[in-house]
Simulated assay, not measured.
Amino acid sequence: MALKLKKQPINTEALWVEFDKDTKIQMVGIDHPHYQIALERARRRLRNNDTKFEEGNVGVIDGEKNETETQAQLLSNFIVKGWTGVEDADGNPLEFAPDVCAEIMLADPKFYLFVLQQSSKISADAKLELQETLEKSSPASTGKKSGQAKLKNESSSTNA
């Protein structure tokens, strides 16, 4: 049996998810390629920063962000795509902006966890749907020529 290259479709569709009765958040799955690339880059930066300290020593580099701040920035730039029903402190509608989204995530752990959980669910649901689609069996073949192939062969043999 030969190895075959099977390209897996990547789900980048943004879905609307209800945060509460007044607020809906538009987001993509946590496995979105842009998020994954940015996450790996953030991890490399952290590893590079760690090499600046001798083994057993711990330190902080000026301007370095903690993991929650980094994740909030990544999620707000690559996972959350929009919202409705979000308001500022005075009750005015707040237009989506990644920096504002990150601020809200850091101020409201419930929203931060909601984005993580729902984007993970979007990815899991998409993978399950793909798996179910791929596992659907096609009708068994008897090895006989299909109607289209039969007609083609019959017409070519009568023309000869």
Rank of each mutant, 00 (worst) to 15 (best):
S138H: 03
D125I: 15
E95S: 12
L39C: 00
G63F: 06
L128T: 14
W83V: 03
N48K: 15
S141E: 15
L128H: 13
Y112C: 01
K127A: 06
A38V: 05
G29D: 06
V86D: 02
G59L: 10
G91S: 08
R45N: 06
A72C: 08
N49T: 08
L94F: 07
K52D: 00
E129L: 07
W16F: 10
L113C: 04
F78M: 01
D31T: 14
A97E: 09
A89K: 14
S138V: 08
E132N: 12
K21E: 10
S119P: 07
I122F: 03
A149S: 09
N11H: 10
E54H: 09
A107W: 01
S141T: 15
E95F: 07
N57P: 01
K127R: 13
V80C: 11
P33A: 07
G91D: 04
L130E: 00
I10G: 10
V17Y: 00
K127F: 08
W16V: 08
N49Q: 10
M27S: 14
E69G: 14
E40S: 13
R44D: 01
S155G: 01
S156V: 09
Q117Y: 02
K110Y: 04
N77W: 06
K145S: 09
N77I: 06
R41D: 03
I104Q: 04
C101N: 05
K52H: 07
S155C: 00
L74H: 04
M105P: 04
P93A: 09
D88T: 08
H32G: 04
L94Q: 12
L106G: 09
D88R: 06
G63R: 10
V80N: 09
V100G: 06
F19Y: 15
A38Y: 04
N77H: 11
A89H: 13
E54D: 10
